[in-house]
Design a binder for these strands. Structure first.
Lengths: 183, 183
DNA sequence: CAAAACGTTAAATATATTTTTAATAAAATT
DNA sequence: AATTTTATTAAAAATATATTTAACGTTTTG
């Protein structure tokens, strides 16, 4: 191989590594381990990979790759692909960031909505009991009402978040914020 | 204090604790420590608190409260308030979840946009060098082009994310997704 | 059917993060 | 100015998380 070819190849590698580094660094804000973040970023520039190729490329253990791939599958950033003739499982990275955004945040927000709304409903029931209790003093009733109203108001936010999730899931949000809009 | 009053008070506490638990649990998905999560959730039901009150209420050390408060201030979920007559610093929780949402996600997304776009720009420069290099073989040029195009396409996403941040910051998103819309 | 290849699970190790205790710095009151 | 109060920083301890090595089970192939 000529020297200039070698230089070009390493320049391409360098270019990829810059992006890989940036993606991996921002990804651990998404609650994935460094190994999973590096793996996804690496796969972003590959057609498909087997566990052994991952292990070799990242110089990490196979179980680490196995666990990372599973986590990435959970948030749908990696999918298993069928490759005829190969005994090894092959995986591809989701390269459409819009899809990754949708899956990750909708999953995250729905979890938050569910958990908090359930707690709010239960809490409000308790508070209503106190308010209705004829033996409660006016001060107690006022306090219970205060918290009840605070929780009631917070529901506005969760309803809005539900709407946001729905509009992302349905793609309706792109009517408001088009994908291709130039800066 | 009468027995029924006591029962009412503990029922109110129970109600609050349910919500505190839920908020705290979902909050550590937001990259804050358990201490900070519990602290915010506790403060959500208080007018204002001093570090000593926090320490007492959560039964944790003062430095832990100090660090947690600082982190919460960074994401603007807690603000310092001036309380005349008190030497102790007093803090209040941001109770408007819309504001917290805006500050947290816009901050997060802007960081991601900046870091990844910078890397992409640098990488594309490298790739252009390779493409323009007259000594590059056709295969090398094709590879460099492939990655260049992939990166170029990904910019669509970051531009969109920028638009999303802008529409949240300006409040324009609420024209599309109103806050008070009933289910 | 035995041996090899592959993937996953379990236990152990390594690493990083969180929290506390102790020490220091800053501010305020007497 | 000295003492006390409050908050922060630094070092240590505790805890949790991530990763690896080793063992296991399953599938495939010769």
């Amino acid at each position: 191989m000529s020297e200039s070819t070698e230089r070009s190849i390493s320049k391409i590698e360098e270019a990829k590594d810059k992006v890989i580094g940036a993606i991996a660094e921002t990804m651990d804000l998404y609650g994935v381990t460094p190994a999973a973040a590096n793996l996804y970023a690496t796969m972003y520039f590959k057609d498909q990979m087997t566990l052994d190729e991952m292990r070799k490329e990242l110089e990490m253990s196979k179980p680490s790759m196995s666990t990372s791939v599973r986590r990435l599958q959970e948030i749908e950033m990696v999918k298993k692909t069928f490759t005829r003739g190969s005994r090894k499982h092959t995986y591809v990275a989701e390269k459409n960031f819009f899809r990754s955004f949708m899956v990750f945040y909708c999953q995250m927000w729905e979890r938050e909505i569910k958990m908090n709304m359930e707690a709010i409903e239960e809490a409000q029931e308790d508070l209503i009991d106190v308010i209705k209790d004829s033996s409660s003093t006016p001060g107690i009733v006022a306090e219970a009402k205060k918290y009840y109203d605070q929780l009631e108001e917070s529901k506005t936010y969760y309803h809005w978040l539900e709407d946001l999730v729905a509009s992302i899931r349905s793609g309706k949000i792109f009517e408001f914020l088009p994908k291709d809009q130039q800066d």
